[in-house]
Design a protein around this nucleic acid. Structure first.
Lengths: 356, 356
DNA sequence: TTTCAATATGCAATCGATTGCAGAAAAATA
DNA sequence: TATTTTTCTGCAATCGATTGCATATTGAAA
């Protein structure tokens, strides 16, 4: 393709017999410029369809008004929603977003980071990939003088601005709810323990068991069960135990919980009377399954807005906070059909379970 | 925040007592540079943690190796998947992606376009918003010498590269399937007719009715029913007609079809025996509802890959094609429980309908 | 009326990387 | 050995927009 010559401020300057300096001042309305001259500049610029070259102006100004966002997967609902929330806020402030995805790969995450550093973005927002095992590349962001904000999945040893969910509390509440509904043998489907979010969800699970003096059964904790298929496989294993669980908390995702539900249906196990199911993330489908699935809403769009606003607040300060700020979004337990047992039903179903 | 001084090629040049010119040649391995010198440059660059400033190099080189993508909403599954597909391919070619969303607003779409023009992206990929009513801003992209690729929702009067779905054929097949299942009174939930995709879906609907010599009933065509709520409202209206439809093709989205299903359940109308339901887009939930919903898969990730590859193919040509290429992805009808009636059931249910 | 402040414009440098070309040195060829 | 070709480096300009500062003019204040 033959690249057309783009109109520059020199073309406008020539037409008006002024210098590029005057044109620049008129276009940016910065510094002194005569109003009549300014209107002429704007008029010619429009006629010639001039578009500023932000490569040049950003290079000269030393800022890009651009935020780079790195997420594990763009087409995962949680992250797409967070991005939408960030975009809502940054649009108001005339900031640009560059969005990258790591595909849950360490190597790709490093590449994303370097690309954004090279692009001289003003801030990098990141949720780390499952594959990531060291965070030198994030330290590098800080070393280059770029603002770094971590969200959801964070490298805890890096003291940066953070926007997180209170995963432990949400998990704690979910498991307490299960126990209050009469479930006694609660299994946990967990994610990779190198990620903070899954560690915290497990921590909340254990805390709830402790609160109610329920003994921890290690056979009830299954690793890496975060897709529907992995959730289903884990469920088959759990339900074939001699002392099978009576509830499954899929702390990794609603997809995992969906896999649990499908296996329960296949095995003609009644939900919620014989088996309770709780997911995580409040995916759209959790309210349309039969029964609908109890889950945890992470307020992902709000999280995105909090991230953007944290950045803008920090920019407005004369100097950086001594201790980087951490914002914690409180998730909400959404109780639905998959975990609701009533007193009367409870008596009947306990009997039914003993005969299974 | 106090912006740190970034390491530049001049810092490396100084340390090695060579000029920036040599450093540049060494880093890019372009032109002649002594191998020993080159290795020294790379070593010092790594020690100093030098990062190229792509603002500067892109400005000088006159290319950015960046593709700008504008979609109506990032957190809508179809678009998120297309983006994922584009990213898969562009990552292989070391191209950067800048992703913008128009929020279905004309004004915001114009802003996105201008931002990308200013950024000197090499290509703009766009699916137009529902609100868009003229396409001067897209013509402007072409005038600035930037490659423009439209996908899915396109401005038909603009002759550009395009990647589309064969919406008419998919719709035609869906409606034929409904008719073949014995549905005789088929309603259409349509989207805004300024968008090509919805016009084509309606066109396929009409074509199928013509093929089977079924008279078009205008009362069965409902406008702007593209969310779950709007689909539910439209369904209530349709089902209260004296001569209610026996099938509803929600050509706008699966969410709309979900609204139909919920109303049917509320009114104790049996699906598929009394009412057939077909959606569009193969959202994840369509296979988990009861009954699962017949829908159309648009192969969105593949579409994204086709878009990226179209761009790269076009770039490799010595000159632009005389007639811009149009790639048509063939969607697939996914038949599920919501539209399957058997011969025996058909006889029973026709009788049941007459008594309703 | 004189002095000071505000307005306006142009010049030249800057931002950081790239590259055409000149000149020098080394290597290859006649 | 002389000539030609290849390799290497540095200089200077380029990319397009911005901005500090000098200079000139106009307007306001003393």
């Amino acid at each position: 393709m033959n690249r057309k010559k783009r109109v520059t401020i020199y073309d406008i300057a020539q037409k008006l017999n002024v210098t590029a300096s005057t044109v620049s001042r008129a276009l940016s309305n910065n510094g002194y410029v005569n109003e009549t001259t300014r209107q002429l500049v704007l008029k010619i610029a429009a006629e010639l369809n001039y578009k500023r070259n932000t490569l040049a102006s950003n290079l000269r100004k030393g800022e890009t008004k651009t935020i780079g966002v790195i997420v594990p997967r763009i087409n995962q609902n949680f992250f797409a929603n967070v991005i939408a929330g960030i975009e809502d806020s940054t649009y108001q402030k005339d900031y640009n977003l560059i969005i990258c995805q790591s595909d849950e790969l360490h190597e790709k995450e490093i590449k994303c980071v370097n690309t954004l550093i090279n692009q001289h973005v003003d801030c990098i927002v990141i949720s780390v990939s499952a594959d990531s095992y060291n965070y030198d590349h994030l330290q590098n962001v800080i070393d280059q003088g770029i603002q770094l904000i971590q969200f959801d999945r964070v490298a805890e040893e890096l003291e940066t601005l953070k926007v997180i969910n209170d995963n432990e509390q949400a998990s704690f509440e979910a498991v307490c709810h299960l126990i209050e509904q009469g479930y006694k043998k609660i299994a946990l489907l967990e994610g990779p323990q190198n990620l903070n979010i899954f560690r915290q969800r497990k921590s909340g699970y254990l805390k709830a068991l402790r609160k109610f003096k329920i003994k921890v059964n290690n056979a009830y904790v299954v690793e890496n069960a975060w897709t529907k298929e992995l959730g289903a496989a884990a469920t088959k294993k759990l339900l074939s135990l001699p002392d099978a669980p009576d509830a499954i908390f899929a702390s990794t995702s609603d997809f995992s919980a969906l896999g649990v539900l499908e296996v329960a249906n296949d095995l003609h196990i009644k939900v919620p009377s014989q088996l309770g199911i709780c997911g995580y993330s409040n995916e759209a489908f959790t309210e349309i399954t039969s029964p609908s699935i109890t889950t945890i809403d992470q307020f992902s769009v709000d999280m995105g807005k909090a991230i953007a606003n944290l950045y803008f607040d920090e920019m407005e300060k004369a100097e950086a906070s001594v201790t980087p700020k951490i914002i914690s979004i409180k998730p909400k337990l959404i109780v639905r059909g998959s975990t609701i047992r009533r007193g009367l039903e409870e008596n009947q179903e306990i009997k039914s379970q003993e005969s299974r």
